[in-house]
Design a protein around this nucleic acid. Sequence first.
DNA 1: GGCAAGACTCGTACAGTGTACGAATTTATT
DNA 2: AATAAATTCGTACACTGTACGAGTCTTGCC
Lengths: 224, 224
Amino acid sequence: MADKVAGRRGRRLQGQGAEAQGNEPGLTRERIAATAVGMLDANGLNGLTMRGLAEALGSGVMSLYWHVQNKEDVFDLALDSVLEYRGPTALQDWRGDIVHVLEDWRATMLRHPWSASLLPRRALGPNILVRLERLSKCLSAGGVSDTDVNAAIWSLWNYVMGATVTRAGFGPSDEDRAASQQRLAELGALYPSIEHSRLLLDDDWDGTFRRGLDFLLDGIAPKR
Amino acid sequence: MADKVAGRRGRRLQGQGAEAQGNEPGLTRERIAATAVGMLDANGLNGLTMRGLAEALGSGVMSLYWHVQNKEDVFDLALDSVLEYRGPTALQDWRGDIVHVLEDWRATMLRHPWSASLLPRRALGPNILVRLERLSKCLSAGGVSDTDVNAAIWSLWNYVMGATVTRAGFGPSDEDRAASQQRLAELGALYPSIEHSRLLLDDDWDGTFRRGLDFLLDGIAPKR
DNA sequence: GGCAAGACTCGTACAGTGTACGAATTTATT
DNA sequence: AATAAATTCGTACACTGTACGAGTCTTGCC
């Protein structure tokens, strides 16, 4: 009952006899994925509906289902298409490389905030494995022992994941910040340490991400 | 257009004249929350429907809406009711205390896997703030400087968050593991480092969590 | 040419969702 | 007893994902 691989084809070439508008060149998984990403970017996770997607593609709703198993499949498609990693630099400074990989990762996901809430519950797509592989290489190059490397990778993964999901959840809107501020003002007395450190008011997300990452890398770096 | 605080009352006391069965003692936010948690535990995030909830409570669907703003509100209720923290021990060993807080946190959320996917996108409820406050105190007690404490708290938060969300996402089912194994077998050649370290096959989640946490705490601990 | 076998599109229909609205009922207050 | 407030809930609506099967188009084979 698991997975039956539905038929899917790539096929081009159709006579544009009647309509000169080449705007709707036939459905493909790629086109579906791209359009889905657009809609998700624009309207968030709930902004994607099969009907809407079909309309944006200029097709009937049920036509999608020939290319796609179900809505979940569309999510998978969109997610993976967003997570491509173009690793530019060659290996040199292991620590700097890791920072780069993770910051790029975070930035990519924050550019499409829905991806953060989507990623956890999906299996690891190829584009994620590429990133993990790269991490693994960097760590080994940095002298992290074989016994530590797995825990290190997962801890880095967890860190990026948590940071991104949290950041995406709080959204760029000031509404949440206002809410936090409000809540803090009300209950501040109950949480003196939090209030003292202004934990919830700080909004230097990038800096905090970077500094926490340094903590983690300090701990991972082989002790001397 | 933001928030109108709906009326909500706590009220007890009704004559049980007609029906002796005290099984349905009237709706309250608490009862709604408890029942919602039960349904979420049993059937996951999609297992909670307003109709189902009403039925389980022995009430009409729309009656819920007098106590609750909307379904989101039910989620908030359920989440917060699950995250209560009964901090047992007094402060002593800062590092051990932190480990305890975080492991308890993770365990609590994994006991209700839906909570992991829910938490990120909600505002911080009081029960979470309690935990953060506690973290903050431990860190200060451990000698972490005021300038570092925020970054440290967030990094710990991120770490627990990521670990829990990931773990909950992969579910306890072996189906996912089988899928990963399959994928790895297929593409193993492309990801030699990952395959070598058996990253995806290791299933000692608790141990890995603990070891990664040690990395992080090593990095956070004040340098000497 | 004819024609059959796929590949692909899509209209209709159905069961299910959250919740707006307003009427009915119960409880509290005067 | 009368009035107001609190609480319940039936009905209705717009919207969701997708099963089903009838259509159309493209291609290869005789």
